[in-house]
Simulated assay, not measured.
Amino acid sequence: MRTPSKVLYVPLRPPKPEAKRSVAFRRNDDYAVWDERGLTIRHGDRTRTSLLDDLPVSPRLFSHEQILRTVEMVNSGERSKNAAGLSGAIRIGRDAYFLVRWEDSKRRPWMEALVRVPLSGKALWPEVVGKFEGMSLAYKPIDDRLIPLGEDIAVVTRKPGAWGVATFNPKSKQFDFHGMGDDLLSYMSTGRKSAVYVEKTAFGPLQAGQVDLGTGQRSPVFEARANVRFLDTEHPLFVVSSTPGSARVHNVETGAEWSIPPNSGIARAGANLLVWTPADAPKTATLYRTDRWGVVARWGEKGEALGVGR
């Protein structure tokens, strides 16, 4: 998109964010670091690094029957006792907390455990705190899913038939779970305690909405028996719904809806929205205003501008 004062480029495929290589907490000569080697605890000249292979068979986390089942799956190659990634980390006072994740041979998460590293202590072993109810949505080698919520450490988790906010209170040492909905399909943070979500409801349709984790208040904004997703987390928020033969864009703030060609790509272009077709190899593109969906400009199959609006 070119104007007399600037040129704006919109990639057909958004670039992937650079992967985080490590998470580190420090207090004087005491360190707690997670990287590709696992969890490293250092006190002065004393250092220990571990992938926490003892936790999947820890009686503090699992029953005897569960441990036996895990051993069988480890021996068969279905699971590994070594941690595969970090779902989140947070510092509370002089303590560093790490939510560590284990995955099976198909890269599916099967276990998460919360451990604590006192940055004022001398032990080279982390303290096993416990498990949140459900599993987080983390998937990156080093993810960032833990957040402070009042006096609690919180994470959005899902389990069969429900999703919500799982919490741990460092003072009372208690875990809790506050249900939010049914089958969570996607979740994106829009702030420290706010997010947008898409879930499959118990009565069938997909529902898109906003949630305030601090108050627990959910605000559904769109519902359809179609594929539903938020375009991104910028404002105004847009929901894109699609079926094999149609697609629509829904403005969350105004409630307005517009049809777009199926198999289209769509992205934000400054204060406007750009829609191109086909998504992988565009032959046409239209630039729309977001306030009243007016056409700003069009581009045709031969690459020429077909018209410019105001």
Rank of each mutant, 00 (worst) to 15 (best):
M1N: 08
R2Q: 11
R2V: 09
P4S: 09
K6S: 13
P15R: 12
E18I: 14
E18T: 15
E18L: 13
S22T: 10
F25Y: 13
R26H: 08
N28R: 15
D29C: 08
Y31H: 13
R37L: 09
R37P: 00
R42W: 01
H43M: 06
H43F: 06
D45M: 07
D45Y: 05
L51E: 08
D53K: 07
L55R: 05
F62P: 01
H64E: 15
H64Y: 09
H64P: 01
E65I: 02
I67P: 12
V71R: 14
V71A: 10
M73G: 02
V74N: 07
N75Q: 13
S76W: 02
S80D: 07
I90D: 05
I92M: 08
D95T: 14
F98Y: 08
R101G: 00
R101T: 09
W102P: 01
K106G: 00
P109H: 11
W110E: 04
M111F: 11
E112S: 09
L114A: 02
V115Q: 01
L119G: 07
G121P: 06
V129A: 01
V129C: 01
F132N: 03
S136N: 12
S136D: 07
R145D: 10
P148A: 11
G150R: 14
I153Y: 05
A154V: 02
R158F: 13
K159D: 06
P160V: 08
G161C: 06
A162D: 13
A166W: 01
T167Y: 04
T167A: 04
N169A: 08
P170D: 05
K171S: 12
K171N: 12
K173F: 11
F175S: 07
F175I: 05
F175L: 08
G179E: 15
M180E: 12
D183I: 09
S186A: 15
G191M: 05
S194Q: 14
Y197K: 05
Q207A: 09
Q207P: 01
G209C: 05
G214H: 01
R218P: 00
S219R: 15
S219G: 02
P220Y: 07
F222H: 15
F222R: 04
F222M: 00
A226N: 02
N227F: 11
F230E: 05
F230P: 02
D232P: 02
T233L: 03
H235F: 08
L237E: 04
F238H: 07
S242Y: 05
T243S: 14
P244K: 12
S246N: 12
A247D: 04
R248K: 14
H250Q: 04
E253G: 08
E253L: 08
E257R: 13
S259M: 11
S259I: 10
I260Q: 05
P261T: 10
P262A: 09
N263K: 10
G265H: 10
G265N: 00
I266C: 07
R268T: 07
A271M: 03
N272H: 15
L273K: 05
V275P: 03
W276T: 06
P278W: 02
A279Q: 11
A285P: 07
T286H: 00
T290A: 04
R292M: 06
R292P: 01
G300T: 13
G303W: 08
L306R: 15
